[in-house]
Design a protein around this nucleic acid. Structure first.
Length: 834
RNA sequence: GGGCGAUUAGCUCAGUUGGUUAGAGCGCCGUCUUCACACGGCGGAGGUCACUGGUUCGAGUCCAGUAUCGCCCACCA
């Protein structure tokens, strides 16, 4: 125990911001979030999303999901676990590149790789500062010494080692195939980079000519792909076209001959029942091209313009070409019909442009052959909430392609690969050289082991950003053994992955794949999936929302840092705590204000307690629970129940339920009822034996301390300050957040049947006061109880509780006499007098 | 077209394994200020628990179906 005297008075709460700042400084200077590898105990480690720093349009939704995870961290820390809580930043990827492109008005074509990269690095550094400032302001109990950035040396080494390991184990392959392509960023994409979008389009019926001069009509939404047309298909059961089997048709405007083939999957009732297949309009075209060995006639260039194959239309963008080709067909009388059609198309998630197919040589990771294994892994995880698992299941079952990991971009981790100029053999560097950039580093191998050539070509592509972020558990566990980094493979699998639902198909899925392939294990044992914070209207908070509501004072109601400035981090956290895990939540400033009210109420309740503890010595012998007054035992019994429930809820990630019942208990039971009942013992000490007053003091002292502990994970700041002001000098822990989670006391559970009477009388008297416009705190001259019709047993019980009843009514005297008002207790009537 | 989630008081939401007159906060109405807090206390009004059937002694809670909203997925060219 410390030497200093306890604070015997709490000031009124003047400045919340100041209190929070004080706590931040304390936590930092005491290093209470530090991970201690050498300490004893069970590890609780958290794999938390490294945000895209450049997409720095932070809103309260981000604050919500990070905070929800952090409630659990604080709880587990107080449970005595060794907390490993790193924070990462994801600097790779198209979001960063797009941000830089827009900010500096540059693109892939008019800048150099190194210039582009340095701008990205600069921007991400700035972005990371904004995030770190917010996370600290929010009170996230992150160990900042464990931070990583997906572009830093350790992460590059880890991703490159991952690639090499996968290659050596035969899970990575290079293939020249039609790949999903983003014509804006001019890079390949993977299936996970797509999202589907509804759009209105036109279904065009176009006439093709047969050798005999007859016409057949096909239906297509993409007439601009006529130059790429390689076949027509009909359904073999379709009598209209059966006679065409094996014949050739002439493509209008472009003149190539294409075979007419049949396929059972062609719908007879869609359009004319005759479809054209191009290289490539969609994934179905790709499938038929592969299956039937169709010709390859690409007409869309990587930049989204039509190639020379399109003749007069070459150089036009797709949309533009569509219009011109349609016009031309119409002029020629070959456009037989046009109808509106609603269509869902795959677009690139990052650029929003429709995905095309382009032939390109790319690196792939085998995932199609892992579907069963990953489903099994997914099932081994403990999901919170459980129903989120179906999102992974649906995604894995719907996989169509292996994972394309090549990106024709600048800002990302390079492939650690050279190719032999002679025989194209893949050449990999030894692991100790990692990370490498093959563009800047000469190939470490002198001559090709296959052909002896000493000329090598570097791989110029970078890896998909998920190649790195899928490794966060291995980055944290220092799988590649980077010197000087904290963490080792005892951390893998980690305890819990926390993230929102939309990246289950990417981050969660790919991470499962990586740990499965590298370590034959799960990456973590638990996953905690949060929902989204939405606008008041229930919509995704957009960049425009953030910009529109900026008022001159600099306050923006969706911007978490200004919310914290205005209402306090504790208040914002309360809002996050009110949303059940996995559910979206409409942001509501009202709810944040409610949180602030709770913080203030807590302060004031503590202030009240302290006012009555001036002569209390916590080192004296406690009064045994059994010897305390019925009110005190009643409070303690309820508190014990709350302790047990809170613990159970938080253990199963149900912070929302824990908070809800705790808040209700604190406000209604502790403040409104218990504190009111206990006042009389302090205001009129002469009516009570010393033990009754001491009983109240012990109960206040212990229950307030317990309440602070229970609230600590949700509202860490104000509870810390109260701990420091009131309890610190009597305890050893430097911070509330490294004290043990409240255990309560099994002895607190006692039966207090009398309290039912007291509560009933309290309610009735309050009601009468309100009805007669008497202040609740005003001392009444008299409480009259009429027991004439009560049972002898009840009479006896009531008479034994005179002091309590008088106290609860705040009456100077208690008299038994006839009365008129129903008391709520059978056979008992009462009356009050001012 | 398939899947998941939601539908409970004016608003935002709780309602554990089906069990007596369905809860909270905000808002509203009324009222109370020497003695923690008016960012407070007390009292009150307000709900055919989306709809239709079914199981049951009994359903907001279980089953089937319908509708509306949101999200995810899906090749109808």
């Amino acid at each position: 125990m410390a030497e200093q005297e306890p604070v015997r008075e709490l000031p009124t709460l003047a400045d919340l911001e100041e209190v929070e700042e004080k706590c931040r400084k304390l936590w930092e200077s005491e290093g209470i979030y530090r991970y201690h590898p050498e300490a004893q105990g069970e590890i609780f480690s958290i794999d938390t999303p490294p945000p895209y720093v450049s997409a720095a349009h932070l809103h309260v939704g981000h604050a919500m999901s990070y905070t929800q995870a952090e409630f659990i961290v604080r709880f587990q820390r107080m449970q005595g676990r060794k907390i490993f809580y790193p924070m990462g930043f994801d600097d790779n990827g198209l979001p960063t590149e797009r941000y830089v492109e827009r900010k500096y008005k540059i693109n892939k074509r008019n800048t150099t790789r190194s210039e582009f990269r340095s701008l990205c690095i600069e921007e991400t550094r700035e972005g990371a500062k904004t995030y770190e400032k917010l996370w600290r302001a929010l009170g996230l109990s992150v160990d900042w010494s464990l931070r990583y950035s997906t572009i830093d040396e350790h992460c590059r080494r880890t991703s490159q080692a991952s690639f090499i390991d996968l290659y050596e184990k035969g899970h990575a392959y290079r293939a020249d195939e039609p790949v999903l392509w983003d014509t804006h960023f001019e890079t390949a994409l993977s299936q996970a980079d797509l999202e589907s979008m509804e759009r209105k389009t036109k279904l065009n019926d176009i006439a093709f000519e047969l050798p005999d001069g007859q016409q057949v009509v096909i239906s297509t939404t993409r007439p601009e792909l006529l130059p790429a047309c390689v076949a027509l298909y009909f359904n073999p059961s379709d009598e209209r076209y059966r006679h065409l089997q094996g014949k050739q048709a002439l493509v209008p405007l472009f003149g190539q001959q294409v075979p007419i083939l049949s396929d059972e999957e062609v719908l007879t009732d869609f359009g004319s029942g005759l479809m054209m297949v191009c290289t490539f309009g969609d994934s179905e075209d790709v499938a038929r091209w592969k299956r039937d060995g169709l010709e390859t006639r690409l007409c869309v260039e990587p930049n989204g313009k039509l190639s020379d194959r399109a003749g007069a239309f070459a150089g036009m963008q797709i949309e533009e070409a569509r219009k011109h080709i349609t016009d031309k067909l119409r002029e020629a009388g070959l456009l037989k019909n046009v109808q509106a059609l609603k269509q869902s198309v795959s677009v690139s998630e990052r650029s929003g442009v429709a995905a095309e197919f382009v032939m390109a040589r790319q690196w792939f990771i085998n995932v199609l052959n892992l579907q069963e294994a990953i489903l099994e892994r997914g099932h081994q995880l403990r999901w919170h909430p459980e129903w989120m698992e179906v999102r992974l299941r649906d995604w894995v079952r719907g996989l169509k392609y292996d994972w394309n990991v090549s990106r024709q971009r600048f800002y990302g981790v390079p492939f650690p690969v050279w190719y032999c100029a002679g025989c194209h053999q893949v050449v990999l560097p030894p692991r100790e050289l990692l990370p490498v950039d093959p563009i800047e580093t000469p190939c470490p191998v002198e001559e090709c082991p296959d052909c002896g050539s000493n000329q090598f070509v570097p791989e110029e592509d970078v890896m998909d950003t998920w190649m790195t972020s899928s490794l966060t558990p291995l980055i944290n566990a220092n799988w590649v053994q980077t010197a000087g980094r904290t963490g080792d493979m005892s951390l893998h699998p980690m305890t819990v992955r926390v993230q929102a639902f939309e990246i289950i198909r990417t981050w969660l899925f790919y991470t499962l794949v990586k740990s499965h392939l590298h370590c034959d294990s799960l990456p973590w044992t638990d996953v905690m999936i949060s929902g989204w914070g939405l606008s008041e209207q229930g919509k995704k908070i957009s960049k425009r929302d953030l910009e529109q509501h900026t008022d001159p004072s600099g306050y923006n109601r969706y911007e978490p840092y200004s919310v914290i400035k205005k209402f306090g981090a504790d208040a914002l956290r309360c809002w996050a705590a009110k949303t059940n895990l996995g559910h979206d939540s409409r942001y509501s400033e009202r709810e944040v204000k409610e949180g602030r009210r709770l913080v203030i109420k807590l302060w004031n309740a503590a202030r009240f307690a302290l006012m009555n503890l001036g002569d209390f010595n916590p080192q004296s012998a406690p009064i045994p629970t059994g010897d305390r007054t019925v009110e005190d035992r009643w409070l303690l019994a309820r508190l014990q129940q709350i302790v047990e429930q809170s613990t159970g809820f938080l253990d199963s990630y149900e912070y929302g339920k824990a908070f809800e019942q705790l808040e209700r208990f604190f406000w209604a039971t502790f403040c409104d009822d218990y504190l009111e009942m206990v006042k009389d013992r302090f205001w009129n000490p002469d009516r009570y034996p010393d033990e009754a007053r001491l009983s109240a003091q012990w109960t206040l002292w212990e229950s307030l301390r317990t309440i602070l502990g229970l609230f600590a994970p949700i509202i860490p700041f104000v509870t810390e300050e109260l701990y420091q002001q009131i309890y610190r000098s009597w305890e050893t822990a430097v911070s509330l957040h490294v004290t043990r989670w409240p255990q309560g006391n099994p002895e607190w559970v006692t039966e207090t049947p009398e309290m039912e009477l007291i509560e009933t009388i309290l309610k009735t008297v309050r009601s009468l006061r309100t009805e007669r416009r008497i202040s609740q705190t005003k001392q009444l001259s008299e409480l009259v109880l009429d027991l004439d019709e009560a049972s002898p047993r009840r009479q006896e019980m009531i008479r034994s509780m005179e002091v309590s009843l008088q106290a609860v009514a705040r009456a100077t005297t208690l008299r038994f006499a006839p009365a008129q008002q129903e008391s709520g207790i059978e056979g008992v009537r009462l009356e009050i007098a001012e």
